[in-house]
Design a protein around this nucleic acid. Structure first.
Lengths: 150, 150
DNA sequence: TTAGATGCAAATAGTTTGCATTTGT
DNA sequence: ACAAATGCAAACTATTTGCATCTAA
């Protein structure tokens, strides 16, 4: 357990949730790993730190963190188990490399005006959105160029 | 099984894959549903059409379709099982009513400049995107207002 | 002190695999 | 004809639940 509380731990407490050993350990592992862990990987890492923390608590922590938007499950390529990413701020999107599966996050998105326009034009009320770009990451672009160059 | 082949079925065949009854049925269900089915929902719907189609074939079809980019697993809200969306054929996007499940399509999207900017800033190559808005459709907005008015 | 959280183990859900059989081309 | 795909059932993996106990506030 870390001595000083991370921003996210503070948000946990402010949400009226207890800062338990299990939760803080899960959060710590996520923060140190940079995210993109499957629940199984997470469980393993948590258990190398503390063998007594149970499977269920890890899942319950993930569920809670997701509801609090501290974390978000993502699905890359055809894999079936989600990987969990830390959400640095409330709003970000992904560029997914269709070659190597790498996920790049970016924060800015220019959709608010579009959302507003759709609301007035179609009479709907928009509360959120999902935006993902697909393509090649920097590495895979280079590889593709290298292949072409041959 | 639909009498005339959808665009996606054609792409399947062009990829050298057989147009089997199981695959066409899965595709048909996906296309008629507007997407966002979990594997379990999909399996159920497929089995209301044809009881003899097995679990495994549905999963194998989903896997194949994903590799061919006909479909993509996505996440909405905090649910843990992916839902499968059809990747758009032409260029259009969805507004999904989170209350009644209605899907509204719209064509215009202002993402091309953003994509271009990301390409230069991050060194990636962007080939496509998935954009969905979540909210309330016109009907459900009215209902919500009615409730508030009481 | 006590509501909320936990660990455990058992139950359930979701997915994959091996193999004999069938089917699309 | 025959490679590819299927259905089935069993294996496997991932997640959830019930409950007695513990712990952070």
């Amino acid at each position: 357990m870390p001595e000083l509380l991370s921003q996210r731990a503070v948000r946990l407490r402010e949400g009226g949730h207890k800062l338990t050993h299990a939760r803080l350990t899960v959060l710590d592992v996520l923060e140190k790993s940079g995210g993109h862990l499957t629940s199984t990987e997470l469980l393993e890492k948590v258990n190398t730190i503390d063998t007594t923390i149970g499977r269920a608590s890890v899942f319950r922590a993930l569920d809670l963190f997701t509801r609090l938007s501290l974390v978000r499950p993502t699905y890359i390529d055809s894999s079936v188990t989600p990987t969990y990413v830390l959400l640095p701020d409330g709003h970000h999107h992904h560029i997914i490399c269709t070659n190597c599966g790498r996920v790049i996050e970016f924060a800015d998105c220019s959709l608010i005006p579009l959302a507003g326009e759709l609301e007035t034009r179609l009479g709907v009320k928009i509360n959120g959105h999902l935006l993902e770009f697909y393509g090649l990451c920097e590495n895979c672009v280079s590889l593709a160029v290298a292949v072409v160059d041959k």
